[in-house]
Amino acid sequence: MEYEVIIIGATFAAAGLIEKYKEKALILERRPQAGYEFFNAINFGNEYSAELKSDEAIMLFERFKSKNIFAGERVCIFDCAYDFYKCLADKNVLLNMEIISVEKQKDCFLVTAHGVSGYRTYKAKKVIDTRVHKEMILSKTLNAVLKTSALKNFVLPEGVKMENWGYDDDIVVKCMLSAEEDYVSARRKLFNAFENMHEDLKPLLVADTFGYELKDGYPKEENGIYYMPSCAYKNPLLAFDAGVIYASEGI
């Protein structure tokens, strides 16, 4: 199967890219979800007042706004999940596809993936990778939503930082991790931090994917592949916007 562009990772940046490339592109994603770098990482983003350059991102922003997700500086983007997934409906998106290899040929790339239908090989002129790779990571966090309604003053456990956003009575906290830590280690760290704390200082919800702080230097092109990790952007709309702009102008 042949496409102009293969986009790896069903992220917000990928959604912006395919918004412009349309049927010329295919998104391949190993997880059963999309937009996870913000939604599932409980990474609600910030700097929502930053200027959006593309009409598509501005429209998405308006849709988000109509969901009343912005309450001052406090944002809850979960309610926009429907709108984000709608962006991917009827597009070429394959989830649950593990990338086996990306081989550079003379005038194209061969991308081999493995999913529920087994191995599939796709040919494309261009590959854009919107995922996070090990070598990009500076540090990780395992984020959680904390219910704080009953407590006026509280001290967070060591190793846990509060984000300056959240919603209503909930706040978002980050359990700080090193780049090398895995999910087992992260869960243990979070457990240890909150063990035996006051009931109202226990997370209601724990992220199912890491939040990342990345090293500088992205996006960048390397060996013909364009790397634009979506989570490097300050918020999902900026990631989406970057995708649209890159697909339109190549920048």
Partner: peptide, 25 residues
Amino acid sequence: LSEALIFSRSYEMSDEQNVGRLMLH
């Protein structure tokens, strides 16, 4: 499978069905 995953998450419940703020899929 991909269509099902995307459709089910893009299907917006009515206010009657969806009481409360969506927190996760």
